[in-house]
């Protein structure tokens, strides 16, 4: 595999139909000199007008898009998002956004989602890099910061010969350098704020220099008030709108570990 170095790469995930934050993220990444942009999937859910996000992502020479569980469900015309929630309260709101997204995604975009790749593997700065949606072993596995121990990650990466792993799916970013020197980065989501009281969304810039690979979290402001008014106009739940306006999750909170939940309001 050819080695890529001395450049900047952008990695983001969890677009959730937020085409406004997607615009802001793509602009920020390109202004930051990103020579390639990787999207780790979950284009749909939560926000309005699904086709607008997909239109920004497809057929761009510098953007590589991976299939998340949401994209797999939409592409294969399944009945739910297969997000991996277990509590009925989480599933209730997940189904509302899935039904809206399903009804408002054009057929040719569903076909495009169906045919996306499910992972990327590269050699960056001499390191073996894997990008996956949830985890390398399951598309909808939640890897939260507070419930993902070092020993587990060392095992997960060593068993797949990976030096750096990039994931999304949970919607809350974190990164960790393990004792072995391996790097794990959850890039968070650009479609929904991270339950931290901020209205910004998160993605990651990766700097490759010689044989060094460094990642940094980026908090991106966007016109969240416009998004909120468009969500209301589309009849999306007021609970979703509140999250956009406050930065706190109001739904899908049961899946949160106690630690991540305690940072929020609900």
């Amino acid at each position: 595999m050819p080695n890529l170095t001395d450049t900047t790469i952008a990695v983001f995930g969890g677009v959730y139909n937020n085409y406004l934050s997607l615009e802001a993220t793509l602009a920020h990444a390109r202004q930051s000199g990103a020579s390639a942009l990787y999207c780790l999937g979950d284009l749909g859910g939560f926000g309005p007008h699904p086709d607008r996000s997909i239109a920004q992502l497809r057929d761009q020479h510098d953007i590589h898009v991976m299939q998340g569980n949401y994209d797999h469900s939409l592409g294969n015309r399944l009945g739910d998002c297969a997000c991996g929630y277990t509590d009925p309260r989480d599933n209730y709101f997940a189904q509302l956004s899935y039904d809206y997204t399903f009804a408002n995604t054009s057929e040719h975009h569903k076909d495009w989602l169906r045919d996306l790749p499910t992972g990327f593997r590269h050699r960056w700065a001499g390191k073996e890099v894997l990008m996956a949606h949830g985890s390398p072993r399951r598309i909808n596995e939640f890897l939260w910061e507070s419930t993902t121990p070092d020993g587990f990650l060392e095992h997960l990466l060593a068993s797949r010969n990976i030096d750096a792993l990039f994931i999304t799916h949970t919607g809350i970013p974190w990164m960790r350098r393990l004792d072995s020197g391996r790097l794990v980065v959850n890039v968070g989501a650009i479609g929904r704020p991270a339950n931290n009281g901020l209205t910004t969304v998160d993605y990651v810039l990766v700097e490759l220099q010689g044989d060094t690979l460094d990642a940094s979290l980026q908090a991106i402001p966007y016109d969240h008030e416009r998004l909120a008014s468009e969500m209301r106009a589309e009849g999306l739940p007021e609970e979703f709108v509140e999250t956009v306006l406050t930065g706190y999750w109001t739904t899908c909170t049961e899946v949160l570990p106690a630690r991540e939940r305690a940072r929020g309001k609900y």
Binding site: T148, G151, F152, H155
Partner: peptide
């Protein structure tokens, strides 16, 4: 468990 990659 730590040495065998247990998660929780």
């Amino acid at each position: 468990a730590r040495d065998h990659g247990v998660k929780e």
